[in-house]
């Protein structure tokens, strides 16, 4: 299958030093990717480039085999959705209003949300367990609830690619699992490709098809979780001693600090 998103020798720098360089990556439809790496290794930069927010100075990113730079912002928003680490709302919107914001790329100027948009928003609210809080103000929600609302908004965009930037950090164990279950089913049932940046190595390893481990803006290793999460990789990238064994339930790699 043709990759839906591919990085061809991509380099990006904010100022003089490269935040990301020589990056080659092929994401296929329906794949769930985990992006690992220590702080400052270029994970968020990678997501921003994948979202078309940052334009690389070297190489190029292809979305559906078309250079990303040739898409308008509006067209990109209909294809790629980003769930940020956190979001602050200055003015009070209801949960439903926030989720309906995800319909922006599908509406024309002066157009109001119609039946289909409401239906999509409803399904997104249902999938993220947000129906009960649909009428509440975003200001009254807890960190975890807000995060789920942002994920619901990304679903309402009906994208083919979803990028999650540590979106599960604020969630408790149950919601972490539910969000991972949800994105896993999106990849399987709707063929959505998902890139997840997470510091939760074990959890990502349970769900991801493939992983990338970044170090200093370059790919240190990539492949299936069992190939990426190894003692030597983690020691050289994170600089700490670990034991890697198998998760007794799923058989995916499990990391324990020594």
């Amino acid at each position: 299958m043709d990759p839906i998103l591919s990085f061809k020798n991509v380099g990006f720098r904010y100022d003089r030093s490269w935040a990301m360089r020589n990056l080659n990556l092929d994401i296929r439809p329906g794949e769930l990717w985990g992006i690992l790496g220590p702080n400052g290794s270029g994970k968020s930069t990678l997501l921003s480039v994948a979202d078309g927010i940052l334009a690389p100075q070297e190489g190029q990113v292809l979305l559906e085999n078309i250079p990303m730079s040739s898409f308008t912002r509006l067209a990109l928003a209909g294809k790629v959705a980003m769930v940020a680490q956190e979001s602050y709302f200055r003015f009070s919107f209801s949960t439903l209003e926030v989720v309906l914001m995800g319909r922006f790329p599908h509406l024309k100027r002066f157009q109001f949300e119609g039946k289909k948009d409401i239906e999509v928003a409803f399904k997104a609210l249902e999938a993220t367990d947000c129906l009960e809080i649909a009428q509440r103000s975003i200001h009254e929600l807890s960190g975890g609830e807000k995060q789920r609302v942002l994920i619901a908004r990304a679903l309402a965009q009906e994208p083919t690619i979803i990028l999650l930037d540590e979106s599960t950090s604020f969630l408790d164990l149950r919601y972490k699992k539910e969000i991972f279950d949800l994105i896993f089913s999106l990849t399987r049932e709707r063929g959505v490709s998902v890139l997840v940046v997470s510091h939760d190595i074990d959890l990502s390893a349970q769900y991801c098809d493939r992983m990338v481990m970044l170090k200093g803006g370059r790919i240190h290793s990539t492949g299936v979780p069992a190939d990426v999460i190894t003692v030597s990789n983690i020691e050289s990238v994170y600089g700490c001693q670990v034991i890697v064994d198998k998760n007794p339930a799923k058989g995916s790699p499990r990391v324990s600090l020594v």
């Binding site: 927010i53 912002r73 990109l76 200055r90 209003e97 926030v98 922006f104």
Partner: peptide, 20 residues
């Protein structure tokens, strides 16, 4: 007006949702 709604939710968010 819908652009303004999104901009009040953060410029970065607005860009991600397709606002120029």
């Amino acid at each position: 007006s819908r652009h303004l709604n999104l901009i009040t939710a953060g410029e970065e968010t607005a860009v991600q949702l397709g606002v120029d």
